[in-house]
Design a protein around this nucleic acid. Sequence first.
DNA 1: CTATGGCACGGATT
DNA 2: AATCCGTGCCATAG
Length: 475
Amino acid sequence: MILQTQNQSLRPLTTAHLAQTMSLMGLTAAELQQKIEAALASNPALEVVEKRSCPICHRPLADAAACPMCSRPPGLETTEPIVYVSSREDFYTPKGTSFSDDHPGIDLAPEVEDLPTYLLRQIAPELSLEDRPIAALILTSLDEDGLLRIPLAEIARFHHVLISRVESVQRLIQRCDPLGAGSTSPQQALLVQVELLAESRPVPSLTARAIQEGMDLLSRHLYFELGRLLGIPTSRAREIAQFISENLNPYPARAHWGDVHASATPSQDTYHIPDIIISHLNERPDGPLVVEVISPLAGQLRVNPLFRESLQQAPSEKTEQWQADLEQASLLVKCIQQRNHTIVRLMQRLVMIQRQFILNGDAYLEPCTRASLADELGVHESTISRAVSAKAVQLPNGRIVPLSKLFDRSLHIRTALRELISQEGKPFTDTQLAEMLHQQGYPIARRTVAKYRAMEGILPAHLRSQRHHLAAQPR
DNA sequence: CTATGGCACGGATT
DNA sequence: AATCCGTGCCATAG
């Protein structure tokens, strides 16, 4: 359902209206869809009318008058984004949901979210129907680290299938984004990561064996012993250890190291179907930005005009009921219009503010608060809060991030921090880093640097050290 | 003694 | 009113 409703339709703001609009605001596209479907089924006064698509670009058209995509001359230079509510039906297969490569440094871990759902989404296409329950059991048995607590045999027994079946499902899961998730041990997780990594980049030889046979030595940093075990010089063993610590993660889902309070997962958020898609007009990198706010329905929701007419001739005993239906229907429609209108305005403004971030990445995130936006738009802050929470947005580069990321107050500083550390020779101490950031115009306390480091999963200075210089060796 | 992580306390945000 | 976030202080590891 779409609308286009700028000016009209903002009339009587009854309390019911307000209340419903607010509750609508916090819903994701999927939840909203359910709600609408329910209303549609129970209320005869509502109907969905087909929406037409633009003959040129095939995008759904909100309004007959103009296609937001094509009505503008291509290549038009503008910083003003085109924002509209879309009812694309194909949004379930967004492009680039996969995180193909991670950068040499540290890649951003996905926001705190429901790991099982996230994984399920990735494997769903390859999963046969019979294997679904198995996958479900595995996924729900993961711990905070993304590891499988219970033995595979348990799962096999529970579903009365061969262990090998379970193993193949597990394999599928392990190859998903938090690489190695679903492994039964940190060791196994590492092995899977090595295996997959080896497909795309060089991996020191014997790494796998080192993990397999010398796990305890590795974790205790006994490189000399490890070298002897594998029949290689200590220096080689050290290289392997270094490679592992730099590229692998024994706890696939553990993104924040210092954060014990990582109560990560109570939320049922499914951040992996976007609620909003930002792209370039006609895929041209120089084109203006287009923001599609995904609508759950493939048509426009409205009050059935026929129903309204027939109200006149309603049998007298029904007329009251019908009247009520009609009112409720128009209330719902109105609320949804209101909701969409607000979201469109919000995105319009937000995309303008965060244009650089959207185009160029994390470092360009402009700090901005929900409150300030609310002020600009003349709506209550809580409205923005609701609108922003539990929604995900797909950026032109294909990444899907929570909408709330656009309100992250420290992301740009954290990015600067990563930058500094990635270019450091000798590891900088937190105090030094704080100092340097200060010079760059980020007045950050030393303690805060430490926290940001933790957020980014960067080790403290003394652990980063043994990266380059290693002189003496225990003999 | 120095570099860090933990706890906890305002102040800002939601 | 409930949370989140940046910080200061203090204990601890190296």
